[in-house]
Design a protein around this nucleic acid. Structure first.
Lengths: 242, 242
DNA sequence: GCCGCCCTATGTCATCCGACATAGCGAGGC
DNA sequence: GCCTCGCTATGTCGGATGACATAGGGCGGC
């Protein structure tokens, strides 16, 4: 079931800059397909040579890199509205992989049209760049976590960051949100072992700032979580969406 | 001493895409100043609200973030030709700081002209995006290091990455290169303590794959370093330079 | 010329985190 | 219905890394 940009239920949310009908029509000419993938599907492969560009329409995904011996690092999580695959598109070969965490829908934005797009719709080119810059700032924050926060702080920073992002999208209800991450995903995102992640989560749960169970995240005290993690960046809104 | 783009000695190096006189003239209209700063100068401040965009013309610099209690994480190192400040420029407020490691020269590319640039010179807009994507790929690799490599592997990966980048710029002579990093910088870039960095460096020196002393990096066996670090990405050339 | 500071070096000890082992639970296959 | 597999949980142990202390060399200030 194809979703036309003119009828896109995502882009009208307050998290996003609202566009004129004309601008939406432009984006529609770029979008070439609307894909549905099951949880676990890898839609960008490391080393892939003809990678495309996507906007995540619904669901969660992540980007990752791994070492030859199998150690995996998740680079960032993507939520609806996020652009995935810009580096791959620019370089013609992907330095990372991207995987669906849940069933997802993706808007396909063919990379062969990317140069053309910059020429004809510079405003859109600018927004692509903006979204690329935002993606980098998420990775920057994750690097700060992995390099300089302790295990409990890392988890708290991840929770604070995801919660704030989900909140701008309207995914939070009563301090609660669907969190389709296993502890293995959390460990891989934070540079921790699975076992240590599990034990640290148990200790954090006892502190009652937040809890993760049965696929849901419940934040009892966002201020407390942010303070503990020293995580003070708010998600930027409104932001472009393509 | 202002350096005109038409007379720029950097952009003619083989690492960079060669531009027509016309294109260089376009860039010249964007460049508004040529700055000289001393080692240690901070030219983008965290939280700064009117950040500009720069191309590093000569010398080394780095971007960093820090926690409220002072722990610092270096996000990446910049070498000549690298664009610094794109996120800051897009968001209007810098999420990170940037500091000169050596005396540096910077080309000032005023952010207020950025939107205009995309409109009038879409090709340049595309290249700005390309450079932003490359910056992110450097941070991705650093996150992989901090999250999933051991201390010795991290140092080796940093060495391999910097060596390969310096090589494309012609900064390597006889396997040797000026490396203006203190052990504290290395520690802050890799998420290690200063003392542990020092001891790990000593152990690596004994393995004779490479050595760092007196401000120089000597690589005896690049293959060996790359294999040990599991670092197999080559720097991309030729690449745009603005 | 002396002092202070930055950088490097090295030893000892504490701690954080990872590795390995085991177990319970629930979903899905057949 | 039973088995397997994935996910969560918990204990023990060892190793990697951090914290603290001390020292030497070089360099700039005055």
């Amino acid at each position: 079931m194809y979703v036309r940009c003119a009828a896109c239920p995502l882009r009208v949310r307050p998290a996003f800059l609202q566009k004129s009908d004309e601008e939406v029509a432009l984006i529609e000419t770029w979008k070439s397909d609307h894909l549905r993938l099951e949880a676990g599907a890898e839609f960008i492969h490391p080393e892939q040579t003809d990678p495309e560009l996507f906007t995540l329409f619904s669901g969660w995904a992540f980007r990752y890199k791994e070492l030859a011996d199998g150690r995996r690092q998740i680079l960032n999580f993507a939520l609806p509205g996020d652009l995935i695959g810009l580096q791959s598109s620019m370089f013609g070969k992907s330095p990372y992989g991207a995987v669906a965490l849940t069933d997802v829908e993706l808007c396909l934005l063919p990379r062969r049209k990317l140069g053309r797009l910059f020429e004809r719709y510079p405003e859109l080119g600018y927004e692509v760049t903006w979204l690329g810059a935002r993606a980098e700032s998420l990775v920057d924050e994750n690097l700060l976590s992995a390099g300089r926060r302790g295990a409990a702080e890392r988890i708290a920073a991840l929770v604070a960051g995801l919660y704030k992002r989900a909140e701008t999208l309207g995914l939070v209800e009563d301090g609660t949100l669907e969190l389709p991450l296993t502890q293995q995903h959390i460990a891989d995102a934070l540079g921790l072992s699975l076992v240590h992640t599990n034990k640290t989560l148990a200790r954090l749960r006892a502190q009652k700032l937040f809890g993760i169970s049965e696929g849901r995240l419940i934040v009892h005290n966002l201020r407390g979580v942010s303070r503990f993690a020293q995580h003070f960046e708010d998600d930027i809104t409104p932001r472009p969406m393509i």
